[in-house]
């Protein structure tokens, strides 16, 4: 198989683009996709500091790598979830990356903020582990950005993540979730920073290939709590559709963003308040994070 651009031997075939690339041309293709995402959605500028949420996995470290190379001012944020050896290794990957690139990294431990690590939160709340974890991440990312004066948080969500989330929302007709699914969510409250996903145009195979070719040392092992997660089941279904019809995931997500999302956006009207306890943004009076922390502290003490 030959590279579409230069004719040299290819290292990666992208069936949805009916193309294959050699390593240098794939890296350039990847960077172009990130540039296009940032440009199209006006995600951030080089005058702003971007808080990059990094887990230690391929997506977030690939994103940080591209943004540094592109000349953006970045600070990493790693949330230590306290999930046994997995979290120890994840944190080490982020620290090594930050040290090697000479970029700042903020580390925050969920156990310090919520009162217990994710495995205990799972046990005492009887929530699915990804639920309490995701809630904590969204809250802590926004709060860290505000505390450090950064207007935007960038996450490593890729095309597969976004297509799987959309699939889950549609399967349950969660019409309140659909308008929130976007590569770029603006700040709609002084205490809510912008949230952007510069990798949304790239599949997770592409981000994995980028990380491998850039020799980024990322954690390959999966979170032990991810097994059996609904989002994984949705990804597997979508991957079978992609195998049968290359481009299926892309068409599903981009068709929604271009043609369907605006209809749901008009239907959504949410009033935002400040949590009476912590001052962060909520649609009620006490935010979901404070309720979670209360519940955990009650059960643990």
């Amino acid at each position: 198989m030959k590279c579409r651009k230069c004719g040299e031997p290819a290292v990666l075939e992208l069936r949805r683009h009916n193309a294959a690339f050699c390593a240098p041309d794939f890296l350039e293709f990847f960077r172009n996709q990130v540039r296009e995402a940032i440009r199209k959605h006006r995600m951030f500028t080089k005058d702003e500091t971007v808080l990059v949420a990094v887990s230690g996995g391929k997506d977030s470290l690939a994103l940080w790598d591209v943004l540094i190379d592109e000349g953006y001012r970045t600070t990493g944020l790693h949330l230590d979830l306290g999930i046994f050896e997995y979290s120890v290794e994840s944190r080490a990957k982020c620290e090594q990356f930050a040290a090697a690139h000479g970029v700042p990294l903020i580390i925050s431990a969920v156990s310090d903020e919520v009162g217990a690590p994710v495995p205990v939160i799972k046990a005492v709340t009887r929530r699915p582990p990804c639920s309490g974890c995701g809630l904590s991440k969204r809250y802590l990312m926004n709060r860290a950005a505000l505390e450090h004066g950064m207007p935007v948080v960038a996450t490593g969500h890729n095309l597969d993540d976004e297509a799987a989330t959309l699939f889950g929302s549609v399967m349950h007709w969660q019409t309140d979730a659909l308008p929130r699914q976007s590569p770029a969510l603006p700040s709609t409250h002084p205490k809510l920073v912008r949230r952007v996903k510069p990798l949304y145009r790239l599949s997770e195979r592409e981000t994995a290939a980028f990380a491998f070719l850039r020799k980024i040392d990322y954690i390959v092992e999966e979170c032990p709590f991810a097994a059996g997660a609904t989002s994984i089941a949705h990804k597997e279904i979508l991957s079978r559709m992609e195998d049968a019809s290359p481009g299926a995931k892309h068409n599903f997500l981009f068709g929604f963003l271009d043609r369907a999302r605006p209809a749901f956006e008009r239907a959504a009207a949410v009033t935002l308040n400040e949590c009476l306890r912590c001052g962060q943004v909520t649609t009620g009076t006490i935010c979901a994070f404070c309720k979670l922390a209360d519940q955990v502290k009650r059960r643990v003490s």
């Binding site: 075939e13 391929k58 997506d59 582990p129 997770e204 491998f212 070719l213 979170c223 994984i232």
Partner: peptide, 30 residues
């Protein structure tokens, strides 16, 4: 992954070689 390289679907792997099939799916709610 074959050695230090990525290889495409048409690549022929020799019987004495070692390849790694590295999963790309990450999951849970991120």
């Amino acid at each position: 992954i074959c050695g230090d390289d990525l290889v495409t679907a048409d690549h022929v792997v020799r019987e004495d070689a070692t390849i790694e099939l590295r999963p790309v799916m990450s999951g849970g709610l991120r």
